[in-house]
Amino acid sequence: MGQWEDEFILDCGLRIADWRWRVEVQGNVRGSKRSLTIRNPQSAIRILAALWRLNLAEELQYRANFVASVLGTFFWIGTALLTLAVFFSHATRLGGWDYWEVVVLLGVFNALTGVIEAVLRPGIGRLAGEVRNGGLDLVLAKPVDAQAFVSFRRLDIWRLSDVVLGLTLAGYALHRLGHTPSLAQLAAFALALASAAVVVYALWVALMSLAFWFVSVENLSVLFDAVYEGARYPVSAYPEALRFLFVYLIPIAWTTTIPASALTGRLRPEIGLAAALVAGTALALSRLVWRAALKRYTGASG
């Protein structure tokens, strides 16, 4: 997670997208030399470090946030486990998964929620408002890649506790399952989890880019939350049509079901590579959407 992931995204994914972009725009844009700012990982890290340092300086003023965040997570996990317990008192399997397998998935879900709340919601989640009120102006005037800057400008560090707690929960559930993952399974899990974060990120970018078309959209992140709720349970628990939707169209199956399956050995380790491929594709597509969206930016009139 953290910087490694950012670099991964910025370095690999955006390059693919950028290359495609180049092919697309040839002859389309007059004399424009497209180049990615954060091509050089060092400068990306330098800027991120400066941004996050700034954040930390702001956040450290509010230590209570940390306590509230951890308490909130415990409460959330408690409720989720209780719901599961109620369900499993009537059934032994959910979509072919038994109780502790679903808890592994819940742990993954919670870890990803941590990434969303720590980075995405406070960063790119504010985009819709900024498109409406012109707050994006000053970002666009800077020699940075606007998408990367907007996406990773904030790090609400306390919410990363969700990542730790989620992974701990997954580990505990794994222990209760009596399953010790092999090295290959662990590697596949790591890759699938990183890919899951990328897929979630791509979904946010695509969704938030809609703000450029529908300027009056109040809160696009609610739309994400509604869809992402579907990732709380294994995708096999859903009817055929929904399953297709979640695997191929709105790829939230890749965010929790796949990493959890890789960890428990339900799927073979090669799935990690497939996950990476899906993540790369999703990222490239989201980049294209972003590029198209930016052209429609009008700023707040003035």
């Binding site: 007059r30 004399g31 030399k33 497209r34 180049s35 005037a141 020699p143």
Partner: peptide, 13 residues
């Protein structure tokens, strides 16, 4: 000397 849209970081600097 740049086309501002798509001038990239070199332009923005």
């Amino acid at each position: 000397g740049f086309a501002p849209w798509g001038g990239g970081p070199a332009f923005k600097r």
